[in-house]
Amino acid sequence: MLFVLAVIGVLIAAVSVASKNISAQGMSAGFGFLERSTGFNIGFSVIEYSSNSSYGRLITVGIVNTVLLGTIGIVLANIVGLSVAMLRTASNESLRLLGAIYVETFRNVPLILQAIFWYSIVTNLPSPREAINPFAGVFLTSRGFFLPWINVHGWAIAIAMASIVAGLILSLWIGRSRRGAQIAVGRRKALRRGVWTVCGVVVVVALIQGRIPETSFVTVPQVKGLNFRGGISLPPEMSALMIAITLYGGAYISEIVRAGLQSVSRGQTEAAQSLGISAWHIFTRIRLPLAFRAVLPSLTNQYVWLFKATTLGIAVGYTDLFAVISVSINQSGQTFELIGILMLAFLIMNNAISFTFNQINRAIAIRGTQNRG
């Protein structure tokens, strides 16, 4: 209690001193500046923004850009991490060596150096007219990556995402609630199927109703003039950061998943083999679920770390939350308020990640038993 009181006292004293210094310099304090027009443009924005937009709108743009990059980076890092973990635990020595080389390479090079390296690579790709086309509808150019996309309004995508999140929360609640524990397994599965059916219907209806009139549902990038038209474009800054976070995070996640896979008792896999279960089903139905239970707390910490790593976007010019706050401080001079907004935003976003995965961890935890090797 004494320590907590001391911390609170220091914070109150710091706020008081900062307020007096701001007043002495003739600067205005408060959050009224959020309604003022910024007067400048930014490089990339998912939502609508112009030089006439307010500082509040600019901060919202930064939050959306940060969440977008963090989400894509974490999802792709999981895919890479699981793939490399499978290599590291394979019976083939060459595959294990390949996985080890990947981990030791990307884990031991600082993330900011990887971001700058990939940014230099992306910005030196061919022009749109000579774009690299690795897959149908996908083009890699010096102006960014161009991908197919759906012609729907932003609100429809938001509703679809909210429906998916609601389905996940309801499924966890059905499994964790005391009433759910008293329901037969088959009944719980039926309830979960019903929840996901309703969520699926909501997603489909939202996408249909949100479709932009007089356009095809899916739009594919096509070269028109000196650039691509249609689809969705990822700017070079975002593309470089996405690659760097994916490869760097994938190296750490692979080691976490590998430890989880090795923690699964060999007796369980041998029992499955004796029943004639295929190697793929043993991995997907036995080893991976048990490994996921064991490593989820460690994965949660890694997800939070990767999300905070999006602040490195300022090194390559990506307009994430940290970058727009830095620009806003230079333009408005409201340092104290903007730093507070930055800290609060990251506290909320990172605690949301921790809370979500902690709830998942409680829902899938095995109670009353222990796995012994």
Rank of each mutant, 00 (worst) to 15 (best):
M27S: 05
G30K: 13
F33E: 10
L34K: 14
L34T: 14
E35L: 06
R36H: 08
R36E: 10
G39V: 04
F40S: 06
N41V: 05
I42V: 09
I42T: 12
G43E: 05
G43M: 08
S45I: 06
S45M: 06
S45A: 06
I47L: 12
E48Q: 11
Y49P: 02
S51Q: 05
S53F: 12
S54T: 15
S54L: 06
G56V: 12
I59G: 12
I59L: 15
G62L: 02
G62K: 13
V64F: 08
T66K: 04
T66Q: 03
T66W: 07
V67E: 11
L68E: 05
L69S: 13
G70V: 11
G70H: 09
I74M: 15
I74P: 13
A77N: 12
N78P: 11
N78Q: 14
I79F: 04
I79M: 09
V80S: 03
V80E: 08
G81T: 00
L82F: 14
V84E: 12
L87H: 12
L87R: 03
R88F: 11
A90Q: 10
S91N: 05
N92C: 00
E93I: 02
R96A: 03
R96E: 09
L98H: 07
G99P: 11
Y102R: 08
E104L: 08
E104H: 06
F106H: 05
N108H: 06
V109R: 03
V109H: 04
V109W: 05
P110E: 15
L111W: 12
L113K: 10
L113S: 01
Q114R: 02
F117K: 01
W118G: 07
Y119E: 10
S120M: 11
S120C: 01
S120R: 00
I121V: 11
N124D: 00
P126S: 08
S127D: 11
E130Y: 01
I132C: 06
I132T: 04
P134I: 13
F135I: 05
A136C: 00
V138R: 00
T141I: 00
S142T: 06
G144Y: 08
F146T: 10
P148A: 05
W149G: 07
V152F: 04
W155V: 09
I159W: 00
A162C: 09
A162Y: 02
I164Y: 00
I164K: 03
A166L: 05
I169N: 08
S171K: 10
L172V: 14
W173V: 10
